[in-house]
Design a protein around this nucleic acid. Structure first.
Lengths: 247, 247
DNA sequence: TAATCGGGTTGACGTGGATCAAACGCGGGG
DNA sequence: CCCCGCGTTTGATCCACGTCAACCCGATTA
């Protein structure tokens, strides 16, 4: 894809929004803020961006100025190396933040791509820093979010470094399940937003291996799988499989 | 190792210290601070802890209250899962921060272990938050440090997810080399502080595989290896190997 | 209704790294 | 000086996953 395409794809719509009446406020940045603090945050979260499936929210190398909160939809982030290999570093759903990687060098170090039609709130980072110098709660919560991202990454490193294919997929599905649950959706039945290839990239596996693991889980009665529609039939079984010492 | 051992091993010495005359101030938190700001930071970094090889700086589950800056020595951090598997998540050298994982849940989520006799500066986290509400530069720099950790983790995920054994080791050695260089040491000749097993854990490989890769590099004239003493003979060769599309 | 297309599944086979096992070599203690 | 122990090296074998290839299936278009 050419660079020209890149800029075209960045087209988006801008919409006014407010944290104070957002139904994600208990998941997202505003957590634990007082009413008056929330109003200040409203001023800061200036714009909402609407993206279509496949659109880039930002790209490697692009100047960093805002972080983004997912309001609706689903994203992936990935990193590349010259020779063409790439690695999905995460999947983000509603209430989660995107763009934290850009703070360190003022430039984004990964791509963020919408996996379905989505909306994000753009939070200009310098404003966020300003406000978190005033609001202790916000400051601390933001630090917790960054720290949680580090802990999550350690979990993925563990997964990639020590687990076998089926353990990885089980861990991945259980994680998704728990995140859907936290958002009020069924933890047992959901649609995957990503392809087998993207799952594979995230888990350090080839798509065929992912597909085989799904089939195996289905044969063993742990899941029912129809395309991207997943139903978890035996959570305990998945958990057991995950923590199973390699044979 | 029993829990009793754990508490015993946490014994340490406390020493007064000051950022303003620390020769690491250009690598560490104080980066870019004015003289008067530096004095404020001095008050905050209250204690220095001295650890012996093998001592734990903190452990999984231990209450989080401070982050630590490595003043001298060398550390590793690792995470565990129940069944005994573990994964080294990082190696930290002088000027680098430890403990960022603990912010999210007020509890440490990994172990930090000294790989040689070491000293750290303890920075009570609530004080750091307080001070960074006053000093914009400090606040921003701290955010950059956290973000850099996230970017680093993405790099490791890439490594674990897409690279083959020799590429991983090459990437690892080049990274170490560059960090030694940044600290004024030779980038071409250094002593590894960690065992083959620890390198393997970090790179998602078995120690035998690490050992074989070292031997292979030596055969090919890229390195000379004597125990843990490494001399890089052909940096370009290592880089080329790293970005080599899989055959 | 057929043709096309992209993602997913399945099978056959190859291989990189794990596993198992033995030997080496250095450093410390008697 | 020899002995012991631990980290490391090296060799032989195994196997989980990658690779390659064929086919399937549902959606889209002609």
């Amino acid at each position: 894809m050419s660079t020209k395409d890149a800029t075209v794809r960045l087209a988006f719509e801008v919409v006014k929004t407010a944290c104070s009446n957002c139904n994600l406020r208990e998941l997202c940045l505003p957590i634990g803020l007082e009413a008056d603090e929330l109003r200040k945050l409203d001023e800061l979260v200036s714009t909402r961006r609407r993206l279509k499936r496949g659109d880039y929210l930002y790209r490697v190398g692009q100047e960093f100025e805002s972080i983004y909160a997912v309001r609706s939809g689903f994203f992936k982030t990935d990193v590349l190396i010259e020779d063409g290999r790439d690695q999905v570093t995460g999947f983000q759903m509603t209430g989660e933040l995107l763009g934290l990687d850009g703070i360190s060098s003022e430039v984004h170090t990964c791509n963020a791509i919408a996996l379905e039609d989505s909306e994000v709130c753009a939070i200009p980072f310098s404003h966020l820093e300003g406000l978190s110098r005033q609001i202790h709660t916000l400051q601390h919560h933001f630090h917790q979010v960054m720290s949680r991202e580090i802990v999550r990454d350690h979990g993925v490193m563990m997964l990639l470094g020590t687990m076998r294919a089926e353990e990885r997929l089980a861990a991945f599905l259980l994680n998704l399940s728990q995140r859907f649950k936290a958002r009020g959706y069924s933890p047992a039945e959901f649609n995957l937003r990503m392809s087998r290839d993207e799952i594979g990239s995230y888990l350090g596996l080839k798509l065929e291996t992912v597909s085989r693991a799904f089939s195996r889980f289905q044969d063993e009665g742990l899941l029912s799988v129809h395309q991207r529609k997943i139903r978890i039939l035996n959570t305990a079984g998945l958990k057991k499989l995950m923590s199973h010492q390699r044979v």
